[in-house]
Design a protein around this nucleic acid. Structure first.
Lengths: 200, 200
DNA sequence: GGTCAATCTTTACGGTGGCAACTTACCAGT
DNA sequence: ACTGGTAAGTTGCCACCGTAAAGATTGACC
């Protein structure tokens, strides 16, 4: 059984891409290196993804899928606004730390095709889960809350935390203080966010 | 100082880099294209910056310098905590929008050498200005506030807003709603942040 | 005017992305 | 069971890129 045909090459290529990006950053990504790691020739990815942007877009979509799944699973059964935001925020950070390669690609929006249907679907699904959390905040804490502004605020804060986390370690080592772990910070952030949005 | 053949090649190369990155994103950056735009041969940048990372590091340092200068000039004469956070936040966004190429490089920390002295100096200077703002919040609104946690929160929120702003436009166009301009959002963010940090 | 060092150019080499042409495996229809 | 078609992967090619080395040019200093 000569395995000329790979079992599931697209998935293997996505995994290799995520691994490579997690190791060397998005700038260290190389289509040929990914193909090498997957054990295929350098032109094989083109048959499934067209070009490098196509592969990276697929990785980003996969990342948003995992994020949206986690946000829905974590949050959609919680009725208390603060507890939901805490839990979903912690889940966001957890997924981001578990999938560093995916998230690095998801943020770097000039690498991906933002019109991709799968990418749009899952990223909108994640955003919708966040919006439902904001509706809870509005219903329980502040009827005047603007849902979209609040959702953007939470999204930006958590995403900023994740993308700044390597730099935080640098600053901490430079100033001599020790860095607070990200999963601890996110809890404080949730407090700040909820209290900030609850104020009228 | 450097004024032999070219007028001031290092500065010209930084400017060309920022322009190119602003146009095509960090992934569209190419040392040869930068040299082409500056009107020099493709190996000229190496003599001043060593390699591509050196040039990008210099651009990032320049960006942090402009940011730190603005944050100090905008904030250091304001005594009211909320007003200071508002003003500095607006200034952050303004500098980011005025220097999109610089900021794209500053965020993408795998592109730059984070040990660079100039980079460290200016980024720590910006962080210190932010810390002074947090001390105002502590003194005026909440004596129990943890300065570093609060500073990280504000930094992450504003930086997340800036780096998410292109994606916000996408989401808005996908959902049919219209996107709120970033310079309006930052004002709301400042409210959320201050009220969140003031709660005890 | 002559020497020297800094600045830039030229040349060369290995790596990379994308394209075209080719080979191999699988599958559907008769 | 054969056969045509299609999907999956390979090889070869070209232009571009980053970097290193060696050559050329310019300004500065004595």
């Amino acid at each position: 059984m000569t395995k000329y045909h790979h079992g599931d090459l697209p998935a293997a290529l996505r995994a290799a891409t995520a691994e490579l990006v997690a190791e060397k950053g998005p700038s260290g990504f190389s289509l040929r290196e990914v193909a090498r790691r997957a054990g295929v020739s350098h032109a094989a990815p083109a048959h499934h993804f067209g070009d490098a942007e196509g592969l990276l877009t697929s990785v980003a979509a996969e990342g948003f899928q995992r994020l949206a799944d986690a946000m829905e699973a974590d949050g959609d059964h919680i009725d208390d606004a603060l507890q939901r935001l805490r839990t979903v925020g912690a889940g966001y950070v957890r997924v981001a730390l578990e999938n560093p390669g995916h998230f690095a690609v998801m943020i770097q929006s000039d690498l991906v095709c933002n019109d991709d249907p799968a990418l749009m679907e899952h990223s909108l699904r994640a955003y919708a889960a966040l919006q439902r959390g904001m509706e809870l905040v509005r219903d329980q804490l502040n009827p005047d809350l603007d849902i979209d502004t609040a959702a953007t605020f939470c999204w930006a804060s958590i995403q900023g935390l994740v993308s700044l986390s390597p730099k935080l370690d640098d600053v901490a080592s430079d100033t001599g203080t020790k860095a607070t772990p990200v999963n601890v910070l996110v809890d404080e952030f949730a407090n700040y966010m909820v209290h900030g949005m609850a104020a009228r």
